[in-house]
Design a protein around this nucleic acid. Structure first.
Lengths: 250, 250
DNA sequence: ATCTTACCTTGGTCAGACCAGAATACATAC
DNA sequence: GTATGTATTCTGGTCTGACCAAGGTAAGAT
């Protein structure tokens, strides 16, 4: 069997015990000889077959767990999972925990993702997507005076847009990035009270984005969305320098 | 000390041993009480303080290792690292190992990243970036008849563009995505021999992208880049249906 | 045929031990 | 006084064997 051969090779391959085992399992997972849904053999047996102790084997399994590749179920067994994008969230959380100044940088990535997604959305969105967008739009209008709810509604709309793009990768990335951004500045929305004109901006912009998607116009959709981000950024800039609606009416 | 309080709280907090320890360390890392460069206390002591056995503690440390948050150095100690984007690569590798049909989907994300990056590049690129782009451009011309070298040169140029955008997040994402794409279809470039006209496309397009960046025109830069991707996609489409230059000269 | 119950399996954890090499302290030689 | 070499300590890396609790299962009772 190929399996036995590989195990033999594993035994004499260099590296520490953990590295060996991890590399072995990793290869198996990547090669596809272990597929989602499969249940690994019991830890004791597997450890014996791989020539390591159970604690070491468990280190490797735990490592694969945080990567979302396998799932260790208590008193049941270790089963192979289809990679879950949520682990990305884990990583991003760590990656951007320290410096909060990277928020603007992460925002650039979010803009990138959404601008591409909105193009795809304009091409691929289904009627079902239209409905969801419409609902999200309605919620934005409803919650326009509620900072918390409004923030959620805003996020839901953007998520609906990305979902409508039908790109798994973009959806995954957008989710992770949004997670960071939400954790970072939760109260950012509060400047809504400062700028009365922002309400119109919020409603009108999202409506225009919606229209562009329904109108199947990728170019226009991206342009509007990009403009939307730019204006939002401008609002924040003006809030940062302490401007108010009165003075900014130029 | 706050530390002791937290440890006390940890002892009685629910969850399995591993979860407890992992959550504890995670919190510490995120909160910033453990900063990059710090060395954790020895495993034995830490395990004792946390009220778990060493194997369990090691599971948690190993988990943090694959997340790139800490580094276990043999016979030295466990030190906190600044999160390394390369772990993203690890995840993406697993995530997209099975289905090769997601390649097109990942490509969408790459396009998204690059289009945003090229805009930023047009705004932020330094003279040093110009030089690197120029060099990459020259290499594309040199290696136009060499599939392997040409592919590398192409990649280098695009990477230089993203780097010129000066967004750490975009750079990280682009790296990971490129890694997947390169692993997936390594020989894709071979259709170069089929389409003679592709040579001109390769050289001219990249030159135009370069010019747009130097010209500080974000809009134009993105448009050209997007067009570049579209044409490349078209080449692949035509190759897929077995077309050649002769028939495609319309 | 269905319900109980005892057993076996499996992950979760612990305690203590040994190894090898890095780090450090210390004693010696120059 | 400095430099070199050696002994000790510290630290991660690993193993062994054991115990627990609960899910699964099959034998036994109803």
């Amino acid at each position: 069997m190929t399996a036995d051969l590989e195990i033999t090779r594993l035994r004499e391959s260099g590296g520490k015990g953990f590295e060996k085992v991890f590399a072995f399992l990793r290869e198996r997972l990547l090669a596809g000889s272990l597929r989602p849904g499969d249940r690994l053999i019991p830890e004791r047996d597997l450890a014996a077959q791989l020539g390591v102790s159970r604690p070491i084997l468990r280190e490797a399994l735990r490592a694969l767990t945080v990567l979302g590749v396998v799932e260790i179920r208590d008193r049941v067994g270790t089963i192979v999972r289809r990679p879950d994008p949520s682990v990305l969230n884990d990583f991003f959380t760590f990656a951007f925990a320290q410096q909060s100044d990277v928020v603007d940088d992460v925002m650039q990535a979010r803009i990138a993702i959404e601008c591409q997604a909105v193009r795809l959305a304009a091409e691929r969105a289904t009627v079902s997507d239209f409905e969801k967008l419409q609902q999200a739009l309605a919620r934005i209008v409803e919650t326009i005076d509620d900072p918390d709810g409004g923030s959620a509604a805003d996020y839901d709309f953007h998520r609906a847009v990305v979902n409508a793009g039908k790109s798994e990768t973009l959806i995954v990335l957008h989710n992770s990035l949004s997670g960071i951004l939400m954790r970072s500045h939760r109260g950012r929305r509060e400047l809504l009270q400062v700028f009365e004109s922002m309400k119109t901006y919020l409603i009108e912009d999202h409506r225009r984005i919606f229209d562009a998607i329904v109108g199947r116009d990728p170019e226009h959709a991206e342009r509007v969305l990009r403009e939307h981000f730019a204006i939002g950024d401008d609002f924040r800039r003006r809030a940062a320098i302490g401007e108010s609606d009165a003075r900014s009416a130029s």
